[in-house]
Design a protein around this nucleic acid. Structure first.
Lengths: 189, 189
DNA sequence: CTCGGATGTCTAGCGGTGCTAGAATTTTGT
DNA sequence: ACAAAATTCTAGCACCGCTAGACATCCGAG
């Protein structure tokens, strides 16, 4: 009976082992290289073990995505809290872009690969936590608009910078100026 | 000798047949459903024929992406040219979002699936053509910034709206207001 | 301490994928 | 008419995600 607790603990441990392995492999060689076979070999278990933890490969990607969104949320909040007064928006935006370039595979998992994550009203707590620091910096700029709509619009602007830059669509050497433009436009100079 | 011209013509014809088939299948059932086998069956040729036209599945996706970017460029330019004076930016942005929601698979091919398309200085003509109408509407708002940087920033804002909305990250019923926010912020009210 | 049942893990394999070597066929020019 | 060249197809490779069923291990009752 008591041992069942240990087993459960070991199970949870192995689950994070899987997620971490998937994340590391994706960050090292890209998501296509993260196959169930290679993942199983990496953690030194057979493939069916993975399916006893996750519904399928997609669920593993989702788990990495969720973990990543959590870290992104923390990074944004930390940036906001640690910024000079008046510079919160710039700090949060910069943190967002830094996360995207610093953890490209996790960013990809969170925003283009994840398919099983619920959004909207019944989104997990972590997702709402990520929205909070954005709301904190964009809502004051709402004027007579809906603060949430302004936040979504500002988020979209930063997110667009991140994804277009990641895909090589923008001139790399002007990233800083582009961000400056977005910030000025949203703060009204 | 003369017949070689006909053969070349037929070859080109079959190539567009392939691209169109891929595009229709993707738009109907999503890109994962576009397999080389199904594509070959659809055009009533064997698989190796596809490889005599394209280097691989990825190259077919790229071809759809390129075609789509061309159409997007035309749509943006048409919107700009047909807009009331002073409403060009709104018209172009709306056309961009309409294209994204109207041809989701093509949009996906162009911006998240395409991997073999060159960007930057040696980008194909079509890509630069797509940038032109954006530059036309954003450059006048540059102020003392680099007009191209402002264009890239504006493009990113619209693009971010498109992709976040597509992935269900934003409240669907507020799409119009978000666009209004972006437009106001960039035009300075 | 034994041993049947439950739990956990693995081996082996299914149908599908992108891609390709080599056979078979058709078209071409003499 | 026929050999050469170009084109198309058949068949198969290695890999993918996923799973049924065999095997091993651990548990608690007698």
């Amino acid at each position: 009976m008591v041992t069942s607790q240990r087993r459960e603990r070991e199970r949870a441990q192995r689950e994070t082992l899987i997620v971490n392995a998937a994340r590391e492999m994706a960050e090292a060689d890209g998501w296509p290289a993260v196959t169930v076979r290679r993942l199983a070999e990496r953690i030194e278990y057979s493939q069916p073990v993975l399916y006893s933890h996750f519904a399928g490969r997609g669920a593993i990607v989702d788990a990495v995505a969720l973990q990543g969104i959590g870290e992104l949320a923390e990074a944004l909040e930390a940036a906001r809290a640690g910024a000079e007064p008046g510079a919160e928006l710039a700090a949060v935006a910069q943190a967002y872009l830094d996360f995207a370039t610093g953890h490209p595979a996790v960013f990809e998992a969170a925003f283009t690969l994840a398919e099983g994550l619920p959004f909207g009203p019944d989104a997990p707590e972590v997702l709402k936590a990520g929205f909070a620091p954005l709301f904190a910096v964009f809502a004051p700029l709402a004027g007579d608009h809906d603060p949430e709509a302004v936040t979504e619009a500002g988020w979209a602007a930063i997110h667009g910078l991140a994804v277009l830059a990641r895909d090589g669509r923008l001139r790399p050497e002007h990233q800083e100026e582009r961000l400056a433009v977005v910030l000025e436009k949203f703060t009204g100079r």
